[in-house]
Design a protein around this nucleic acid. Structure first.
Lengths: 185, 185
DNA sequence: TAAAAATGGAACAATGATGTTCACTTGCGG
DNA sequence: CCGCAAGTGAACATCATTGTTCCATTTTTA
């Protein structure tokens, strides 16, 4: 199959990005709202994603890829486990819109791609177990709980920024500090 | 005005409780879905709450009252601040459905009753400040951040129970332990 | 520059939720 | 045990969203 033309892939990206931004604020936004946000006609959106669910699925796939890339960039095999977790946190922190969208969109979480444990989830769990083995992370907690902690800290950081006007840097710093304290042995 | 008859207030409660339970799982559930869950005709729901938004507002008010009552029961002026925070956590943990509903219902959070800082929010912030003054809580964090931490820990606990099949007791225990570690000086 | 690709926008049918009315039961409560 | 408050379900109009089609217009690109 021929590669998608440049114009088409640019338009596709614009729609996808706008959809994430809009749906993160209001998960019930209409296709029309998304089209406006993307600076594109509603017809065009339907030309790229026939049904609303196709758009949702595309968002899920896109986010999944971003998550994977973030984990790669974090080089989780290098250095101490806690440091590596910090790097993952930092990378994921930038994906706030996508995750906010994921949180309050049951249909998204139930997407096959996000089934039980994504590849990235498993990598993080393994990283946490390494931290526990090395005595860097409190072994009285299950790896799953630590993983939950990480997510909820990210959430706290995003919320801190959103509702208290904290800068991203500020929020991330607090986030990381609290996570380190919470998981330390 | 005459007090509401027993039957009426019972029906009202049934609708309200069913609405919380249903909307916590799917925030877009129809009034019909709620009526079925409440074991009541859709017409009856509309008799109690003319519009959908009236029902939503009633839920908000109801939850707000539960939150207040929980804070009262926690006797936040007694004992150490950290112990008191623990009691609040424990009380609030039981309101999971309501909060889940609150989290992914923008229209609910924007309800006048939940404006900026509810009475309970202010009480908790004051409690946290007391903890910081008394040296029980790390003073390098703002009270607002600690408050956010508390919420995100609750969220982590609920999620741990939901997706990892942990018992309420287990989840709450982890929740409290991690919170204490995160906020300790 | 001209063909091809991409977009815009109007119009339309289908759908599902909402809110209202009404005539008909049900079942409390005095 | 009976009357009346309360609830039921059907029917109806309204509304917003969705998905589709068609044609004119703009933008790419060959």
């Amino acid at each position: 199959m021929p590669a998608e033309s440049n114009t088409r892939s640019r338009t596709r990206r614009a729609i996808l990005d706008a959809a994430v931004a809009v749906l993160a604020r209001d998960s019930t936004a209409s296709v029309g709202d998304i089209a406006v946000a993307a600076g594109v006609g509603r017809t065009t959106v339907h030309r790229y994603f026939a049904e609303r669910s196709d758009l949702i699925n595309a968002i899920a796939a896109d986010l999944l890829e971003k998550v994977h890339n973030a984990v790669d960039r974090a080089r989780i095999d290098e250095g101490s486990a806690v440091e590596a977790l910090g790097r993952v946190c930092q990378e994921w922190f930038a994906l706030s819109d996508g995750f906010m969208l994921l949180f309050n969109n049951p249909e998204l979480i139930n997407d096959p791609a996000w089934s039980e444990d994504t590849e990235s989830d498993l990598k993080i769990l393994e990283l946490i177990r390494r931290g526990i083995r090395d005595g860097e992370i409190d072994g009285s907690m299950t790896a799953e709980w630590v993983s939950n902690l990480l997510w909820s800290m990210l959430y706290a950081g995003w919320e801190y920024r959103r509702s208290h006007g904290a800068s991203s840097h500020e929020a991330l710093t607090q986030c990381l500090a609290s996570l380190r304290k919470a998981i330390s042995p």
